[in-house]
Design a protein around this nucleic acid. Structure first.
Lengths: 119, 119
DNA sequence: CTGTCATTCCCCCAAGTGGTTGACTGACCT
DNA sequence: AGGTCAGTCAACCACTTGGGGGAATGACAG
């Protein structure tokens, strides 16, 4: 098996979700904030941004849906924590793409060598 | 300088564009196809998908805008080529995030040790 | 001169996105 | 009982997005 991270059909949806979630600057900022500070309450996160609590709440839900954040609800206080794990799916996809690319270049080089031998 | 890839304000837009462009399954498929086959004409790319030529043309423009593909126009034939370079911006962002995260854990551990000494 | 070809450009549509404001929930504190 | 507080839900708005169809372009072939 050449491509160790070979993506199964089911995973592509999650990969799409992860990339899309990460494509929004505010959401990336939230992830950074959580990485710095550890678990935070929704309100405290919102306080760092020039956005309504509601908007932040929605962003967090998107991050959760993508698996990039998790929530520990302690009555009305929701502690949000960053989840680094799923981000590696991006790396895996990237690594696969690079493998495919390198494979083609290798084949190309081999073909050129073959041609040299026939001269 | 701790974070070697520290993202400047100007870069975040491009990073967003890259992530967003890559978040669409069809666009990822196009990238894979190009990585496998090398430069291809728009029509030939479209032939591999169950989408209109128009849709493919638009997807390619998104990839171009994100810097993930480039175009070499030879009269009416446009040769599209994948560009792996910009993808590393994703890796850089990821590495930075991970650094920030690890930094917090280190600080946490240090604090615990300090506490131990005071016991 | 009339097609054909590869591709873009323009217009249309349905669905999704980021953002807002306002109402709701339910324990806790006077 | 009545207010506060953390957070979600619901409705709404402007804008974008992914997709389609069709016309336009401009060299080249018959």
């Amino acid at each position: 098996m050449l491509f160790t991270h070979m993506v199964e059909r089911n995973d592509t949806d999650q990969l799409s979700a992860i990339l899309k979630a990460a494509s929004e600057p505010n959401r990336r900022a939230i992830l950074t904030l959580l990485a710095q500070n550890g678990p935070m309450k929704v309100t405290d996160i919102a306080a760092r941004f020039d956005l309504s609590l509601n908007a932040i709440s929605k962003h967090i839900k998107v991050l959760e849906a993508a698996g990039l954040a998790s929530r520990r609800t302690e009555w009305r206080e929701h502690l949000i924590e960053v989840q680094m794990g799923p981000l590696s799916q991006i790396e895996n996809w990237f690594a696969d793409l690079r493998s495919i690319w390198a494979l083609r270049l290798d084949a190309l080089e081999a073909a050129l060598l073959e041609e040299d031998n026939n001269d």
